[in-house]
Write a protein that binds this DNA or RNA. Structure first.
Lengths: 133, 133
DNA sequence: CGGGATCCTTGAAGATACTG
DNA sequence: CAGTATCTTCAAGGATCCCG
């Protein structure tokens, strides 16, 4: 059950030095957070439960496919609950779980860092680009 | 200079509700951290300066193209310095800047969260997958 | 309203070969 | 040693149509 016999990913060559379960868990989470919509959706849900098209409007430019995909992944990871009210027309509520709310803590810390340093980063880029020309 | 007149990205429709400079800065940083190698390289450089092939070996399975790309982006963003010693054979040292080292703080916090919650997430996934079958 | 199914475009990433 | 240059593959994301 905890044998961790993941399917090997057609890995030729020696095993990765950073292929430990811990490292893959971290990069797994980061990959999800790094996608285009997850953090934004989680942030919005952090303000309270919301319905599908409500989220769609608040995000602004997301396709319904990507919103569905994002929400399904979050639900699968236990970050979000999906509640269906079998009315006509149908109504579906999405809400952060406790796990989802806890995720917001380190994510917001990273967000704070990004906000605090965005000017510095932008200056570094302009220096780099200028001298590369 | 700070007019923020970004090139509009061929945006039809109403402006994004989350297109503020702050939000884009955050998602910019997250997108970079979410790529396959950046965090790993920064973590390794957090242990001290390293040469190109040294990094290559420590990462384990990265292609030299992706290592180059990752390092160039980090250098451009001011997270890493690149020092060339014009000897034969050439030698290039990479080292985290102060900004890069500061980045490690929130990144490690997120890593801690991922490690602490990886089991919970895995359980949630198995529940979801089992009941979806 | 809340999706599912399908097709298509694009960029990230990998493989390989070559070079100062 | 530390790259650059190409070619190729693959999955994320977007557009569109359809449905209960």
């Amino acid at each position: 059950m905890l044998t961790l016999s993941h399917p090997a990913k057609t890995n030729r060559g020696p095993a990765l030095k950073h292929d430990s379960p811990d490292c893959r868990a971290v990069s797994d989470v980061l990959a999800r957070l790094g996608d285009k919509w997850t953090v934004l959706v989680v942030e919005i849900l952090g303000r309270g439960p919301a319905r599908f098209n409500e989220l769609r409007r608040e995000v602004g430019s997301i396709s319904q496919k990507m919103l569905t995909t994002t929400l399904r992944q979050l639900e699968r990871d236990g970050m979000v609950t999906r509640t269906v009210y079998p009315t006509i027309p149908p109504r579906v509520d999405y809400e952060l779980t406790e796990l989802g709310r806890e995720l917001l803590v380190p994510v917001r810390a990273l967000g704070e860092w990004a906000r605090a340093n965005m000017a510095t980063i932008e200056e570094a880029r302009q220096r780099y680009d200028a001298q590369a020309a």
